[in-house]
Write a protein that binds this DNA or RNA. Structure first.
Lengths: 214, 214
DNA sequence: TAGATTGTTAATCGATTAACAATC
DNA sequence: TAGATTGTTAATCGATTAACAATC
């Protein structure tokens, strides 16, 4: 069964909502309420959930416990994944120690940086290695997920090394588009500065729309 | 003229590519080459650029200098924008001092946090304020762009305060969906943990696809 | 039962891709 | 000129939305 990518993203988002609901796993929530919460239409919520098979109860909504369980099963979110960060600037360091990673199933087991000096200075419980060891350590430690937080110029090489070591999933935060180093490796590019620009552009365009000839 | 959102995002990405090309503003690049660089088809590149009016030269490609200028004009990217960060945890602090912000047109003029202790501890040249002053300071300092980096539970309130002060564009990094507090305010939600999950899910699904019955 | 809400189908919408005449 | 590449149109593709019978 093929699940469209926008649906995968929304299901992950719903999964987080279920986690946050926490204690109250028996709670029933309607597609309309979920839609309000996630900024989606109730139609799209029902459509998304329908990929999981029957999950709701007509007249009552979706039980958060079951919903969470079904999402986890369909998307493989209950597995734990050994994870590393390449590039330990301020963003990389923040991610290295991000306390929500563990509860979300990502075990941070290694950090890499090209600067030996930085490796010696950082105080962290995560094991640190020089950048040239990425593929060796990834293989040895059976790391499945790689986070790239190096400068733009180094991002593609970082992705290649991660893939060479056997990483299957990469999130790239460097301001350059990284493409899958080889088939079977999934890459997601997240450029925070670009997001700022997009939102600035959107607000610029919606302003211009209101004042077309002023 | 309405520009589709995916096109806005890709144009911003092209704009960054033009900046990075730097010195060589006279360089001509074909839609095929741009596509390779940005992970898009040459068709979509040409389509995107066509929203800017005539920009290329048949047989030769696009001049990076002109392309950059036209994107900036269409999306309002040459304006500088006064910007602030709400929430000064590790991510917020990293953004506060992110050195690429300035060159990209974002002037970081204020940081906010609910913890007075944190405000007193942080060493930065950006002016810091307690969180309850967000809307006042935003108004007084004519801040146009707000970045949210608070915990999930505080994100919507932060967005409300930013909008109350007059911010038009918000990027939310908290792990919760924030919707526009009022019409005319543009919000973009970037959940880094969700990105990790999405990529993990995609790689899980593509694995399952290869091994359907094993 | 009556009211609420799902699961699903069909219709709509919009974005992406392919193709090619026009142009340099 | 011949080769390369744009700008644009039309075709395709896929995602979102609307609607409603089935169900609790």
């Amino acid at each position: 069964m093929v699940i469209p990518e926008p649906t995968i993203a929304r299901l992950c988002s719903m999964y987080r909502f279920c986690e946050d609901a926490g204690v109250d796993a028996g709670r029933q929530v309607s597609s309309a309420a979920l839609g309000r919460e996630l900024g989606a239409t109730e139609s799209s919520i029902r459509k998304d959930i329908s990929f999981l098979g029957e999950t709701g109860r007509s007249g009552a909504g979706y039980g958060l416990g079951l919903l969470k369980k079904k999402i986890a099963a369909a998307l493989g979110l209950s597995r734990r994944r050994r994870t590393c960060v390449v590039g330990l600037g301020s963003l990389g360091t923040a991610l290295l120690e991000y306390e929500r990673l563990g509860p979300a199933g990502f075990d941070m087991v290694a950090g890499f940086d090209a600067s030996i000096n930085r490796l010696e200075t950082l105080r962290t419980s995560v094991k640190l290695y020089p950048a040239y060891e990425v593929s060796d350590v990834v293989r040895r430690e059976r790391i499945e997920v790689g986070i790239i937080a190096v400068p733009a110029a180094a991002a593609r090489e970082a992705a290649d090394s991660l893939a060479a070591g056997g990483v299957q999933a990469i999130v790239n935060f460097a301001p350059v588009v990284v493409r899958p180093p080889r088939p079977g490796v999934v890459v997601r590019n997240v450029d925070m500065l670009n997001e700022l620009r997009v939102v600035a552009a959107q607000s610029f365009l919606s302003d211009s729309a209101h004042t077309p000839l002023a």
